[in-house]
């Protein structure tokens, strides 16, 4: 699927093509404003910006970023140096994405930006201006787990769980991209997510299982 198609879906108010629905998953941190799009128009974010708590210290190069996180409009002032991962974890209270290397070498920080999986540690927060970010917190529909989440439980595709949010976000993308068509292909396209506990066999089994339930694969 091309990027253009994602954008089109986004414009229709769909979070992504992954069968996700927008939910109020964003936890409010001290320095952010989260506005539910279902109750307020997009312009209200500007008004809400007045209520945003400032950064604890004004950096040399501050930047106002407006983006959508798990379906919620977020407007937040950042230091230009901030990564998407640090924005999520340290400013927005979304700690599902994990820091394992901070250099794009482990995959624990994987989130979706505009429908594609990326390493959030190596993505400047400035770059998600106007974009749509989906994290592990935005994957399930309330208490109903995404089929990939359920499959990870069923196949014990995790141990310590630290790489798991990144694995699952990568795995969902792997299926949607059409790269979950064989065990070999899954292994290749999941190799950007290191599981030091060594749950790889379970991860591959879980993706095969979920792919059939997601209607792709």
């Amino acid at each position: 699927m091309s990027k253009d198609e994602w954008v089109e879906e986004s414009d229709k108010g769909q979070c992504s093509g992954f069968g996700l629905t927008r939910r109020d998953t964003l936890k409010s941190g001290a320095a952010i404003v989260a506005v539910s799009l279902s109750t307020q128009g997009p312009n209200s974010a500007e008004a809400a910006a007045d209520r945003a708590a400032p950064l604890p210290v004004t950096p040399q190069y501050p930047l106002l970023v407006r983006t959508t996180v798990n379906g919620e409009m977020v407007e937040v002032e950042i230091d230009t140096r901030t990564s998407v991962l640090d924005l999520l974890r340290e400013r927005l209270g979304l700690t599902g994405a994990k820091k394992g290397c901070d250099h794009g070498q482990c995959g624990a920080c994987t989130v979706h930006v505009d429908g594609r999986r990326v390493a959030s540690c190596l993505t400047l927060a400035a770059k998600v201006e106007g974009g749509e970010v989906v994290t592990i917190e935005g994957l399930s529909d309330g208490d109903n787990l995404h089929p990939m989440q359920q499959a990870f439980i069923d196949h014990d595709a995790l141990q310590c769980g630290y790489c798991t949010p990144g694995q699952i976000m990568a795995a969902v993308a792997c299926v949607v991209e059409g790269n979950a068509t064989s065990r070999e292909r899954i292994r290749e396209y999941m190799s950007g997510n290191i599981c030091r506990c060594g749950a790889y066999a379970g991860i591959v089994a879980a993706i095969e299982d979920a792919a059939s339930k997601m209607g792709r694969g």
């Binding site: 700690t95 599902g96 994405a97 994290t135 592990i136 917190e137 399930s140 787990l145 989440q149 359920q150 990870f152 439980i153 014990d156 995790l158 769980g161 798991t164 949010p165 699952i168």
Partner: peptide, 9 residues
């Protein structure tokens, strides 16, 4: 604890 782990919680 798998449920919390797959939720990122």
């Amino acid at each position: 604890d798998a449920r919390d782990k797959v939720l990122g919680a």
